[in-house]
């Protein structure tokens, strides 16, 4: 019982990070119809900046803010400087350019900072609280959950309650119609990339202190799992990414705890396969248009 509670609570925190990263993939997919394979490398580049700022200033929070800003700037730069120039008639060119970007970023980071893992200290303790003898959620995990909830809530408000959000959604669903309504669609695509990469950078920033440390490949596994999560959730659906992220996080925590750590990725793949077989559009698929 103790073990179950512990695994559930740490799975929840892990799921929140996964959901956040998956959400970032959903945002860029909706904005630009691109699966950004460079998301992890871009996020980690932003984490290196956060790491450097924290090391120089001694403040975790300055590093966090700097990392998010770097993520947003990197998103804008990659969109305006690279992705906008790639032909959009098929998804393939965008994917190939993204994969090329992964190689450049990861090699660049390795050359600049070396391949070793750098320890990133979390701002809060990772020792779990003790609730009547049962270990549940460390202060850091609680922090991760609160930050993830705040950011997801903020993004939901932005997309659903503001005129910027309305333009972002309209540009994603119907670019030509949006332009006919005076929406500056290319700018909306850039904003989508900025939001997406900043969110991914946040997820990576939250993840790294719980893992081995910072190295150019530190978010690769997160990307793979989050990509599966985004597809399970329906790729177009923020709510789907959230639900699937929490679900997959808890599942892999339970499998790690009760079976073995190496079985966890297999469990994720099994869920992905099952979802693709039963609901190919993902858990939360878009509504069908009325044709009469």
């Amino acid at each position: 019982m103790d073990r179950l509670v512990f695994l559930l609570s740490s799975g929840l925190a892990r799921g929140a990070v996964l959901a956040l990263f998956a959400l970032s993939l959903v945002i860029v997919w909706r904005a630009a119809r691109v699966v950004n394979f460079a998301q992890a490398a871009m996020a980690i580049a932003a984490v290196y900046v956060a790491f450097a700022i924290t090391a120089a200033s001694g403040s975790y929070w300055l590093g966090l803010i700097g990392g998010l800003a770097t993520g947003a700037l990197l998103g804008a730069a990659v969109e305006a400087g690279l992705m906008r120039r790639v032909p959009h008639t098929t998804p393939l060119p965008g994917m190939i350019v993204a994969i090329g970007l992964v190689m450049i970023l990861q090699s660049g980071l390795s050359i600049a900072f070396g391949p070793q893992h750098r320890t990133m200290r979390p701002p809060f303790s990772e020792r779990p609280f003790d609730l009547g003898g049962v270990p549940v959620l460390s202060p850091y995990e609680l922090f991760v959950l609160v930050v993830a909830a705040l950011v997801m809530g903020g993004l939901a408000l932005l997309f659903n309650r503001t005129s910027l959000g309305l333009q972002l959604r309209a540009s994603a669903f119907a670019p030509e119609t949006s332009r006919l309504l005076g929406v500056r669609v290319p700018r909306m695509v850039t904003v989508g990339w900025m939001l997406s990469v900043a969110t991914a950078a946040l997820a990576a920033l939250l993840l790294v202190p719980t893992e081995l440390g910072l190295n150019p490949f530190a978010a690769d596994l997160l990307f793979v799992n989050a990509f599966a999560v985004a597809v399970i959730g329906g790729l177009d659906s923020p709510a789907g990414a959230l639900a699937a992220g929490i679900g997959v996080g808890i599942l892999s925590s339970l499998v790690t705890g009760y079976v073995s750590a190496s079985a966890a990725p297999l469990a994720v793949l099994a869920v992905l396969t099952a979802v693709l077989l039963l609901r190919p559009g993902g858990l939360v698929a878009a509504g069908k248009a009325r044709s009469a």
Binding site: S163, L166, Q167, R169, A170, F173, A174, T177, S178, L181, V183, A286, G287, A289
Partner: peptide, 13 residues
Amino acid sequence: VVAELTVDENLLL
């Protein structure tokens, strides 16, 4: 019409 948006959102847009 942007099918994914409501009538109200279409008009606001």
